[in-house]
Design a protein around this nucleic acid. Structure first.
Lengths: 173, 173
DNA sequence: CTTAATAGTGAGTAATCACTTGCAAAAGTA
DNA sequence: TACTTTTGCAAGTGATTACTCACTATTAAG
């Protein structure tokens, strides 16, 4: 991957996150990246190709976030780490995650599949801890993680750290 | 409001919800509504004006949904009704609510303010029931409602009815 | 009936859209 | 060195964008 190629990707990420995919023109991306507009199409084929490249990065990053949770053997620790998942994300990466959330709405891609390994790990954890309906408990945690993530990235006033602490207390973790 | 004016609003709602605001052109809206494109600008000024009109409808509808909850005096019933809030929405109104959720991301409008009365009612209810941290409990419920709504409107596989039943059981309501 | 306001149209507008093309500079590769 | 491939740019392309304008049809009040 060339230097300019990365610059295009970085600029697209920033602008797509800030303004949205459809509201961002390829000429804007090119200007922001200080390259000719044609170069975008040379490297990524079309605008959707550019988006796909970004989406692929997202897939990889989310997998990386899950690894630490899924590999954990202590069930209590699995749930704790899941709840705290979003606390670990760098502020410099906000654009990146914001885009991922935004695109779930803009492109109608279901996030169920991506969350599947996390759901399995949580279900298993709740099962080990003797909860009556482990799968529903897992769904609930995922709902909260997603909700907290959304709130933070949308710039809500919600104190995410306090919510996580509260949840951890609620589950005796 | 004229017949054609309503048709424009209806078409815009449908298309904005399906394709997104920026991805829907005014000419598409006009065609779908079987009116001349110019009429849109006569009545709504510009594309954003059309959006504002739709957004205003949303504000009113969400207030109507809240009334039944906020007016309830029995604290347990307040929480129960809040949890079940999304179960009452008509499938014919899916486009409408989908657009409201979509726009929260596309236009970066915080939904905190709209949710404020609901949060107050829930906080009060949890307080009456002797919960230690009523405000955080309220936040959690709102997070849940928002999450269920998102999941359903995004076409997730999540069984929302079962999740609601599960939560109601969890809170002994 | 007259008049004025509103509702509605359809053919424009300049600007912008995603994308292409021709060509040159650079970088491998032998 | 000579040749091929990749990288990059500038100047285009036709289509579409949000929006305007000149005009007509309809309505309603005096």
């Amino acid at each position: 991957m060339t230097e300019k190629q990365e610059k295009i990707l970085q600029s697209a990420l920033e602008l797509f996150a800030k303004e949205g995919f459809h509201a961002t023109s390829t000429s804007k991306v090119a200007k922001n990246a200080c390259v000719s507009e044609g170069l975008i199409f040379r490297h990524f084929g079309n605008k959707e190709g550019l988006l796909s490249a970004i989406l692929q990065l997202g897939e990889n990053r989310i997998k990386a976030l899950f690894v630490d949770i899924v590999m954990e053997s202590d069930p209590k620790e699995v749930i704790r780490k899941a709840i705290l998942m979003t606390s670990g994300i760098d502020k410099a990466d906000y654009d990146f995650w914001k885009l991922q959330f935004k695109l779930k709405w803009e492109l109608e891609v279901s996030s169920d599949k991506k969350m599947e390994p996390l759901k399995m790990a949580l279900t298993n954890a709740f099962n080990k801890l003797g909860y009556e309906e482990p799968e529903l408990e897992a769904n609930l945690i995922i709902l909260f993680i997603d909700g907290i993530g959304s709130a933070v990235l949308k710039g809500s006033e919600l104190d995410s750290e306090e919510m996580m602490r509260f949840l951890i207390k609620k589950y005796n973790l």
